[in-house]
Design a protein around this nucleic acid. Structure first.
Length: 402
DNA sequence: AGTCCACAGGAAGGGCAGGCGA
DNA sequence: TCGCCTGCCCTTCCTGTGGACT
């Protein structure tokens, strides 16, 4: 048996030249001092919100642009600058930021209101009360607040998809009953056609001002990457062409700066792990498949048991036959599996919903097709490489030990 | 042109768990 | 402890549908 030496692993690591000097600067939680190619948006948002510095109500703003175009970053930067200035001028300004995509924050109207109450320092039970009561608690707080209050709802499209737009309607009406508080509202959305889904009344009040964040192109992404790698990666650790490659890959994915930063960070981590001297283009490829795989694993992990069983069924069939399946086929196979391992099965109606959910997560592709006389159904295929799918299948097998 | 299949997917509601106030 | 509320996962019942077949 060969002798494994942990001491050796540590020494190798310590002897190799570190790739990063400040890895944090390549994560989304990092707020840089300057944001390249967004000067215009920063100025526009600043002008709109500056009204607060005269203790007047800023217009409601709606911001939209694809993922990783700097919407959140810029909104946060402008808000903190505004708060600082308001502090200097002794102006009462409160900004409540909510990311509607966060689980257990805005899955329901109730939870969002409870979260807003929590941010405002109002004590509200996380469940158990009538929604009306939580509305009242929040509105009471606002009516008594003497100053400017700005609520920022990030990923507002997710909120509306989950709970509808009633809550937005109620929020936009708040101002009519306020005397002391100046209340305004910033909505941020990834979905460019989001406004079409809104009630006309909500739209007219929410869209007092509109800001658009166009996707970054490859050249701009390379600039952003350079400014971040300057502070995060040690000099000479990036092979020529790597920054351009990360930028090009991300530019193809709707000009997503977040993706570019992730690629660079993961490629750097891989280089450190492999004790390599530089981040190479090959590592960027590897990083990309690693990121895709992790995303899928995380999505599957949080699914309920029956979703996992259905995904298991689909993957098993693909391993055997590697051809597209129909809803009916999946259901038959799923029932067979449930019988074999003696678990309770769900109905085909529910299975149909779960298939749509797995489709939305990007794990499978489910397309509604008509086979004429032979009915309408969904054609299902895997949206991830079969090697990743097999790993997921093994993880599910282990979890339920069958 | 009408029929018919195999579902899709909306609506309503059941059952259970978790959490709260009285 | 009890009643009440919400969230989640699920069922039942139902209507709608695209296009091959007759």
């Amino acid at each position: 048996m060969s002798q494994f030496s942990l001491e050796g692993v540590f020494n190798d690591y310590l002897e190799s030249k570190p790739i990063f000097k400040n890895k944090q600067a390549l994560t989304i939680s990092y707020t840089p001092d300057t944001i390249p190619h967004r000067e215009n948006q920063i100025r526009q948002l600043g002008i709109i919100l500056a009204t607060a510095l005269r203790e007047q109500r800023p217009s409601n703003v709606f911001i939209y642009g694809s993922t990783g175009t700097g919407k959140t970053l810029i909104t946060q930067q402008v808000s903190s600058a505004l708060k600082k200035k308001a502090g200097e001028l002794n102006i009462n300004l409160k900004i409540l930021y909510v990311n509607c995509k966060m689980k257990r924050v805005s899955d329901t109207e109730y939870r969002l209101l409870a979260y807003l109450c929590e941010l405002s320092g109002v004590n509200v039970a996380p469940t158990g009360l009538a929604t009306e009561q939580v509305y009242k608690a929040f509105f009471d707080y606002i009516s008594n607040y003497d100053g400017v209050l700005i609520v920022i709802l990030d990923e507002i499209d997710e909120l509306v998809a989950k709970v509808g737009d009633t809550i937005l309607y109620n929020m936009t009406r708040i101002n009519q009953d306020l005397s002391k508080c100046k209340f305004s509202f910033v909505g941020i959305s990834n979905n460019l056609s989001f406004s079409n889904e809104l009630d006309a009344r909500v739209k007219s009040s929410l869209y007092e001002e509109e800001l658009i964040f166009p996707p970054y192109n490859a050249v701009q992404l390379a600039d952003i990457l350079r400014s971040r790698t300057d502070i995060s990666v040690n000099e000479g650790m990036i092979e020529e062409g790597v920054i351009e490659k990360c930028a090009a890959v991300s530019a193809q994915e709707h000009g997503d700066a977040r993706k570019a930063l992730d690629l660079m960070r993961v490629a750097g981590e891989l280089a450190e792990r492999k004790s390599m001297e530089k981040i190479t283009e090959k590592l960027v490829d590897l990083a990309q498949s690693r990121i895709d795989r992790d995303r899928v694993f995380d999505a599957v992990k949080t699914q309920p048991k029956q979703s996992k069983m259905i995904l298991y069924t689909i993957i098993s069939c693909f391993e055997r036959e590697s051809q597209n399946m129909l809803t009916g086929d999946v259901y038959d196979k799923y029932i067979g599996l449930c019988k074999r391992i003696s678990i309770k099965s769900i109905t085909q109606r529910r299975l149909s919903d779960i298939i749509s959910e797995l489709d939305m997560l990007g794990i499978i592709n489910a397309k509604v097709i008509s086979k004429g006389r032979y009915g309408r159904t969904k054609e299902i295929s895997l949206a991830i490489p079969i090697s990743t799918a097999s790993k997921i299948k093994n993880a599910i097998e282990e979890e339920f030990s069958f």
